[in-house]
């Protein structure tokens, strides 16, 4: 199929950037979206032009490195997939496709379609861990009984790959879904409960400090999340945050 790509080009952090048209011919419907961009880049390189910079790594939906805003939706029109898992069969011959970077003040563009997601790492560093003594006498995690329900919920939360689609999609650029997944994956397990109170306060404060917006419960994040992280996590984090601050019972 033949497509008309409209791609955001921006030389550097400081450059203003603009949308540039790239017609592309003979795209196979079996290609992944990133393979289609690879083909475009080969064409650009052979013409002596600067290729389009975009993030990618595993190309199998597990690292959360890819990050494109395609035709007005994070990771494109398909559900439950990352950009690398999106296939060209989701598009039709003659389509115009807008390709933009994830946008949020806290996720500044580095080049073209690549954004700096280190603000998300800094939230994680503010409390997304369990402090244990790893000097060799650590207790076997499997020796601690955990209700099946909580183990499953914690696992679901832990499947968040930190891609940032929730932030990109949110009209408020709020990081609530990401942070609540990171808070829940620990607070649901006995090992994480020891530091639960400090964790939720520190991570929420860090999120505000980094300039992410505030959640107004539109629910867009849950729809666009490639891992189907549930809004329940946000509700749970609100509960934990309130009880940590006001000493209410959980």
């Amino acid at each position: 199929m033949n497509l008309n790509l409209k791609i955001w080009r921006q030389k550097s952090k400081k450059d203003k950037g603009k949308i540039v048209d790239y017609p592309i011919a003979n795209v196979s419907e079996h290609m992944s979206f990133l393979e289609m961009l690879d083909v475009l880049n080969e064409e650009l390189v052979s013409k002596g032009e600067e290729p389009v910079a975009f993030d990618h790594d595993c190309r199998e939906g597990i690292f959360g490195m890819c990050s494109l805003y395609i035709n007005g939706e994070a990771h494109g029109p398909d559900r439950g997939v990352t950009t690398c898992q999106l296939h060209m069969r989701k598009f039709k011959d003659g389509d115009t496709i807008f390709i933009e970077p994830f946008r949020a003040t806290a996720l500044p563009v580095i080049k073209d379609l690549i954004v700096d997601r280190s603000s998300m790492d800094r939230i994680q560093q503010a409390g997304g861990f369990v402090s244990v003594n790893t000097s060799g006498n650590t207790q076997d995690a499997n020796a601690i009984p955990i209700p099946k329900e909580n183990a499953d919920l914690a696992f679901d939360a832990a499947t968040c790959i930190g891609c940032g689609a929730c932030i990109a999609t949110c009209k408020n650029s709020s990081a609530m879904l990401y942070v609540s997944a990171k808070v829940s994956q620990f607070s649901l397990l006995p090992q994480g409960q020891v530091e639960a109170k400090d964790r939720v306060i520190n991570m929420v404060n860090k999120m505000d400090e980094e300039g992410f917006g505030n959640c107004t419960n539109t629910g867009a994040c849950e729809v666009e999340c490639p891992k189907g992280i549930s809004l329940d996590n946000i509700s749970r984090m609100n509960r934990e945050f309130l009880s940590a601050n006001f000493g209410l019972k959980k």
Partner: peptide, 20 residues
Amino acid sequence: RNNKARDVSYAYNKPAANSS
């Protein structure tokens, strides 16, 4: 505050696809 949290807006956005 929420408007400030996105300094550059999308050229093409489709919010109706995921929220009311």
